[in-house]
């Protein structure tokens, strides 16, 4: 697993700062992610973890520091942003499927309009992705007719349709009923094992233990602690990490 290409970081963040008005959401985040790594980011709400992964595909603009994704630095250059976005898939807490389009249309939208693929090719690949997330029979339904778990799996398929190099997950299971969390996590685990580079904001510690290469604990816009799952769970160095873990693991 240590070829040269894999050692090359695909995401480089240095000293990333972000303000919302006077409120400072990120106070200097640095992180390097290598190809194929699975990163889990966790922390209390308001700690900046969502804001951080949203800066990586520039849904939020960072105001200080550098972010380099796949060799392209994120600046105000619109072409750069478009190029980056087509390499990064994103899955949201609230699914954000397009309610006026069928499942199939949701997935083929970007390949047809951004990649300019012919409709047939886009639909073939969409069907393969639906097979992969386990719901090919829902292709012609509308999002509103699906359960939350199914919707989130469609959202994953939609993000994968652009054949991204990186996948961002912003609390993908937080809006789901408990019995649906597993079906989504299973898809994510399969994706992680297939070698996808993933940044996942989540409190599903079982998922982190199973597939994370590294974990980052965020609090108040800073990385408090980072390490392998073993280091974080077995020997956390910081008091705040211990306290937070005890809170989310014991309930």
């Amino acid at each position: 697993m240590s070829t040269n290409e894999n050692d090359q970081p695909i995401i480089i963040c240095r000293d990333v700062h972000k303000w919302f008005g006077d409120f400072q959401a990120l106070r200097g985040i640095s992180m390097e992610v290598r190809k194929g790594e699975v990163i889990v980011i966790f922390g209390p709400s308001g700690s900046g973890k969502s804001t951080f992964i949203r800066t990586i595909n520039r849904l939020e603009e960072h105001q200080r520091g550098t972010i380099i994704v796949d060799g392209i630095e994120l600046t105000h250059d619109v072409r750069n942003i478009a190029a980056i976005r087509s390499e990064i898939g994103m899955v949201f807490q609230q699914f954000n499927l397009f309610p006026h389009l069928t499942v199939l249309q949701n997935i083929t939208m970007a390949p047809i309009w951004v990649r300019k693929w012919p409709k047939e090719k886009a639909e073939d690949i969409a069907m393969q992705l639906l097979e992969r997330v386990g719901i090919p029979e829902q292709a012609n339904k509308f999002p509103g007719q699906l359960s939350g778990g199914q919707q989130q799996r469609v959202a994953i398929a939609r993000a994968l349709a652009m054949q991204p190099k990186i996948m961002l997950f912003d609390e993908p299971t937080s809006a789901l009923d408990p019995e649906m969390i597993k079906e989504v996590l299973d898809v994510m685990i399969e994706l992680a094992e297939s070698g996808m580079t993933m940044l996942v904001v989540t409190h599903e510690m079982g998922f982190a233990k199973a597939v994370a290469d590294r974990m980052y604990f965020f609090d108040e816009g800073l990385v408090v602690e980072s390490g392998t799952p073993e280091e974080i769970f077995e020997h956390p160095k910081e008091e705040r990490t211990k306290l937070f873990l005890s809170q989310i693991l014991t309930h």
Binding site: R85, G89, N96, A110, W113, M162
Partner: peptide
């Protein structure tokens, strides 16, 4: 969220 999702899959503002 609809606009963000559209941007995240790479659609232009116009699309």
């Amino acid at each position: 969220g609809q606009v963000e999702a559209a941007q995240a899959i790479g659609l232009s503002k116009f699309h």
